[in-house]
Design a protein around this nucleic acid. Structure first.
Lengths: 149, 149
DNA sequence: ATACATGTTCAAGTAACTTGAGGTTCAAGG
DNA sequence: CCTTGAACCTCAAGTTACTTGAACATGTAT
């Protein structure tokens, strides 16, 4: 009946207690009631709100974007289309990042494979892979050549 | 013959000049020679080294990892296998991130699509998508239900 | 000679938290 | 009732990898 203390809220939402206090400080969470001993006391609304916030953060929205999203939830007179647009913008950024990361993964796989193939013997001072890394342009004449890492 | 000034090095490596000074400060780049008027003077070695550093950073290695990589390049008596292992570790992390990002992209696509389908009319106060966002567990009974963003 | 770009140092700001110090409050066991 | 230990409190500072700004010096083109 007495509501949750910060640890319980933290547990229910998978959030660090210090992060909850931080969100309060930056105004992303409202100041909660306090009990006798000055400890924060949260209710279901706080659970919902923090769940929402964490979910948005997990999906890569910035704090400022989350702030906007929260205000959209608060103020229904504005269209949910604003949320849609925000999501769309974010989606585009995610897709770019996704492509970059996929390219990175490919390069890393090649780098590791090249290492395994060429340098398997161990600590050879002749390893050219590290040269590759610092090479500016020269195609490293038939060695590894992954352009990695 | 006088070497590059900081702006030229920045241009050649696609690095912000302030970032170059920062790298110098944290010891990732050596202190360069200075010319008469105290301006930094770089050579080809610096171009190579900074290219290497930027490339590693672009590939998501942390500054500390790059520091290790740089020292590996410097000290050939150690195996390039260390670089391989670092890359392998990094690869695993990248793959996790890649999977998360792919899941995120899917959710965002669904969210935007659901918005288009359900709320296309505009600013309806009945939009349930935002409710979805804050819903803790209840499956939102047949509405949108993307669990997004 | 005079603009104006480019360089210099040093300090502070940024995001989004996390960690630490030093002190209270709460719940359980003896 | 008393004590222990976990959980809580506030406030300050640390983290990562830079970026931005102020105030001044230098280099280059006209």
């Amino acid at each position: 009946m007495a509501g949750y203390r910060i640890g319980a809220l933290a547990g229910r939402t998978g959030t660090n207690a210090a992060t909850i206090r931080y969100y309060e400080e930056i105004g992303l969470l409202p100041r909660p009631d306090r009990r006798e001993g000055n400890q924060r006391c949260y209710g279901e609304d706080d659970v919902r709100r923090l769940t929402f916030i964490r979910r948005c953060r997990d999906f890569g929205f910035s704090i400022e974007q989350v702030r906007t999203l929260v205000s959209l939830v608060q103020d229904r007179s504005r269209s949910c289309m604003e949320a849609r647009d925000l999501a769309q913008t974010h989606l585009s950024a995610v897709q770019v990042k996704l492509r970059e990361l996929a390219a990175l993964e490919k390069s890393l796989v090649q780098f590791v494979a090249a290492c395994d193939a060429e340098c398997a013997g161990g600590p050879g001072p002749d390893c050219c892979i590290l040269d590759d890394l610092s090479g500016t342009m020269k195609p490293a004449a038939g060695c590894c050549g992954t352009g990695l890492p």
